[in-house]
Design a protein around this nucleic acid. Structure first.
Lengths: 160, 160
DNA sequence: TATTGTTATACTCTATAACTATA
DNA sequence: TATAGTTATAGAGTATAACAATA
C-alpha cells in the first residue's frame, strides 16, 4: 500500500470530514449551507409540516422556523396551508428553483464522491458500500429509527 | 442481508452524518462543539501559532481568534508568547483541563464508533479501514496536502 | 388544556474589512 | 511596507422560554 493504513476509528472520523467538506464546498457554490442542502434534500419527494421536518433534521422547532424562514426568503421553499384539517399547521414545499437546486446539488455531490470512490477497485467499492450500509443501519437501530420507512426513500443528503 | 444495501454515494453521505452526529453528541456531554473538539485534538501533541492553526482547521484568521477566545475563556487553552523571535506571535497551547477533555473526548468517540464497527465482521472492518484510508488519502492528494507530514500524527478528530 | 408554530433572546460560529503592533 | 493577530460588523445556525392561535 502506498500509504499507511489508518485505524478504523481514524478512518471513519477523517472520511466523515472529507465527505462533509465536499458537501460544504458544493453548497458554497450555490450559496447553500449543509443544513440548507439537507432541507432541500428532505423535501425533494414530499411535503412536511414543521414538526416532522424538525424531527428529521434533528433541530428544535424554533431552529426549524429560522431555517425555513431563510430558505423562504430566497424562494427555495414555500409555506402553504395544509389543505384540510388543522388551521395551525403549514406544509413546507420546494419551489421550482429549490427543486432545481436540490437536483443539481445532489448530482454535483455524487460526481465529487464518485471521483474519490473511483480510485477504489470494484470489489473495494462493493465492500465499502456493504460495510457502510451495515454501519448506518446499526446506528439507526441504536436510535430506534426505521430508516427504510422514513429516510432512505429520499436523497442521500436527506438523512442525519 | 437484513437491509437493502445502500448505493455507495448514499452510504458515504449517510455514514458521514452518523459519525458527525456521534462527534456532536460526545461534544455536547462536555459542552463542546465539533470545532472545539477539533481544536483540542489539533493541539493535543503540539503548540501552534494562530495562522497555522487557522490553516489546519480551515478557518479564517478572525474565526480562529474567536474560537480560541471562547476556548481560553473556559480555560481549555492558553495563549502564550513565543519564547524567542516575533513579538507579534502567540502560541496556543492546551491547559491541563483542555488536555483532559481532549483525551476523554477521543476515548468516548472511539468507544461509540467501536460499538458500531463491532457489528461488522473482522474482515468487514479490515476492508472498511482499507477502503476509507484510500478515500482519505485520495481526497488529501486532490488538495495537494501531505497527510502523513501534517495531520496523521495527531488525533483522529484533528483533521478535516 | 394541549398542540402547532412563531417570537424574543442569547450564544456560537463564520467571514470580510479595517485596524494595531511589530518586523 | 509587509506580516501576525485582533476588532468591528454582519449574518447563519442553534437552543430555551414565552407566546398566540387553534384544537
Amino acid at each position: 500500500m502506498r500509504h499507511p493504513k489508518l485505524e478504523i476509528i481514524d478512518a471513519l472520523v477523517q472520511s466523515s470530514f472529507v465527505v462533509q467538506q465536499i458537501l460544504t464546498e458544493v453548497g458554497e457554490q450555490h450559496d447553500l449551507s449543509v443544513i440548507q442542502i439537507r432541507l432541500l434534500g428532505v423535501l425533494r419527494d414530499r411535503q412536511l409540516r414543521m414538526a416532522p421536518l424538525a424531527a428529521i433534521l434533528g433541530l428544535s422547532k424554533s431552529s426549524t422556523t429560522g431555517l425555513v424562514d431563510r430558505a423562504e426568503r430566497r424562494a427555495l421553499v414555500q409555506r402553504v396551508s395544509v389543505p384540510v384539517g388543522d388551521e395551525r399547521a403549514v406544509h413546507v414545499t420546494l419551489s421550482d428553483e429549490g427543486r432545481r437546486l436540490a437536483q443539481q446539488g445532489t448530482a454535483e455531490i455524487a460526481e465529487r464522491l464518485n471521483a474519490l470512490a473511483g480510485q477504489l477497485s470494484d470489489s473495494g467499492r462493493q465492500h465499502l458500500a456493504r460495510a457502510l450500509t451495515q454501519l448506518v443501519y446499526a446506528a439507526a437501530d441504536s436510535r430506534g429509527l426505521d430508516l427504510r420507512a422514513n429516510l432512505i426513500k429520499s436523497t442521500s443528503v436527506a438523512v442525519a
